[in-house]
Design a protein around this nucleic acid. Structure first.
Lengths: 187, 187
DNA sequence: TGACAAAGTGAACGAAGGTTTACTATACTG
DNA sequence: CAGTATAGTAAACCTTCGTTCACTTTGTCA
């Protein structure tokens, strides 16, 4: 079975953060000829789990991706191997790694958007945003995470919690980044 | 500057899903001696961005990680280079890639937990769960995503939305997986 | 059962890999 | 400005890499 071999490679990658060489796959697969490995790799390339550029092996996106399914009441769609979508979290969530960072949310001012205390938020560093964006901003020298609203020329911040009133900047409102995604881990 | 070199390597990795070889780094850095590359790599290993095992180069977790900051009202903590935490999303979110998959949530039955329609949920495949877990389950042959409750011996499902009553299984309740995390992307 | 494809063995090969050594140019520092 | 660390050049080295070839074993199915 070729998928066992793929899993072994995935495990190796998970542990070492790189693909095994052919010699290492020999041990991994309990084989004794590099040619056997060569043929297996060839097959994995055909299946689009691996790729090669000028004799250098690399994983594809499919290699990392998790199956993505939708919930239909009738049947459990993951059972059907075909028609599956695949998604890599890092690729899905992070546009430019250079300008992204994570922020741990504190407070309940955004519960209306499903952003709770302790959640992790992915922020894209930039100083421009459009009305409705959740922004990391400095309002009158205080840092906060709120919804940006532009009312004509005036910009102000709003919570997603009826407990809090809108925040109008007395002096300045500087935007530092825009929230791209929320992540909450259970347990 | 060594961080420029690191960024070039990161870009290369992003594009090719593997590290460049020394010869490729030559072009990447516009150098003409492999020894120069050798020394740069040595430095990146000391800084713990790369590592080597039996002459094979590999990235470390730090290589992939995003800076993680907390929000303190006084100052903006990301400005301080030290005391930073780093986090890799894939590692953080996914325990065992083999038994994980993604599910697109439909419906509003879990809004109380901040799980909205259209959110992505990471599910760990297993048939056991403890009371309070959000589970993907089949109740009387219908698939659903709900909170598992164990009342003594009896198990039933509960929504996180006052609109819905608890669901007591008439015949059977089979657990398929447990929700490990929620992801919501904006825009 | 016999034929044929699939999977594996073993050895040989050139190319490319990372490493080392010795030397030069550039930049910093007291 | 002399002295010294830092960054880069150039060439040679052996190891390991991925590939190929010819052959054998195993499995499948008509």
């Amino acid at each position: 079975m070729v998928s066992n071999r793929l899993n072994a490679i995935k495990k190796f990658f998970h542990k070492h953060k790189r693909l095994p060489s052919y010699s290492e796959m020999l041990k991994l697969f309990n084989l004794s000829s590099k040619n056997a490995v060569f043929k297996i790799v060839q097959k994995l390339i055909e299946l689009n789990f691996l790729k090669k550029e000028s004799h250098k092996l690399a994983p594809t996106s499919k290699f990392f991706a998790l199956p993505l399914v939708g919930l239909v009441k009738a049947g459990f769609p993951i059972l059907a191997e075909e028609n599956r979508d695949y998604l890599t979290l890092d690729e899905y969530l992070i546009g430019d790694p250079q300008s992204s960072f994570l922020l741990k949310v504190s407070g309940d001012s955004l519960i209306g958007l499903g952003i709770f205390d302790g959640d992790l938020v992915i922020i894209d560093k930039k100083d421009q945003a459009t009305s409705g964006d959740v922004v990391l901003a400095q309002i009158d020298r205080e840092w906060t995470l709120k919804i940006l609203k532009k009312d004509g020329v005036k910009a102000y911040l709003e919570a997603a919690n009826p407990k809090y009133p809108p925040f109008y900047p007395v002096q300045e409102l500087e935007i530092f980044g825009v929230v791209k995604a929320v992540i909450r881990k259970f347990n």
